[in-house]
């Protein structure tokens, strides 16, 4: 990375910082619990885990400082964003009662595009058929309940 000391791995250092932050949140949360009357209460385990995380954050920071993390290759940020976008769309549609089938249809097309396909209409169609099949099989055959929207209520 382009820092003064070429061996310092900034991204890995951020991981160590995140671990430390998580440890502090755990400690803060544990302190809000009432102290046990006798023996060890619900506080003990969070404190043990938090102390472990602090030690490990130090260890990770040391590895990052020495550049001991394996080499990482460049990655395709657009592909990652497309899949995360697909998942976000899925959550939005299900959250707004749009139903399972439209939600997973979009997720299917977004993921296929992330993997380099450039035929969005075909992929939407395939995603729709797959989602429909999954929905019918699991709700009718296995009587699981999946989120239903306007479309699913017609089935």
């Amino acid at each position: 990375m382009e820092s003064a000391n070429p061996t310092i791995d900034r991204a890995a250092l951020a991981i160590a910082a995140t671990l430390l932050a998580i440890a502090l949140v755990i400690l803060w949360d544990a302190m809000s619990l009432p102290a046990p009357v006798y023996g060890i209460g619900p506080r003990a385990m969070p404190i043990i885990v938090a102390v472990g995380l602090i030690l490990l954050a130090t260890g990770n920071a040391y590895l990052a400082w020495r550049g001991d993390f394996p080499e990482r290759e460049d990655y395709d940020a657009k592909a990652v964003a497309l899949i995360i976008g697909g998942l976000a769309a899925l959550m939005a549609i299900i959250g707004l009662d749009g139903g399972f089938i439209p939600a997973t249809t979009i997720l299917f097309a977004a993921t296929a595009t992330a993997f380099g396909r450039r035929a969005i209409l075909t992929d939407l169609a395939i995603g729709f058929v797959l989602s429909l099949a999954v929905y019918l099989m699991f709700t009718k055959l296995l009587s699981l309940s999946l989120p239903a929207g306007p479309l699913e209520r017609l089935l």
Partner: peptide, 25 residues
């Protein structure tokens, strides 16, 4: 592309079937 798209559809299906909530997703 279709393989991983299908895997994700099944993954979300399993999650939402176990606990129908957006927080779970």
């Amino acid at each position: 592309p279709w393989l991983y798209a299908g895997i994700l559809v099944f993954a979300t299906m399993g999650t939402i079937a176990a606990k129908p909530s957006v927080v779970e997703l």
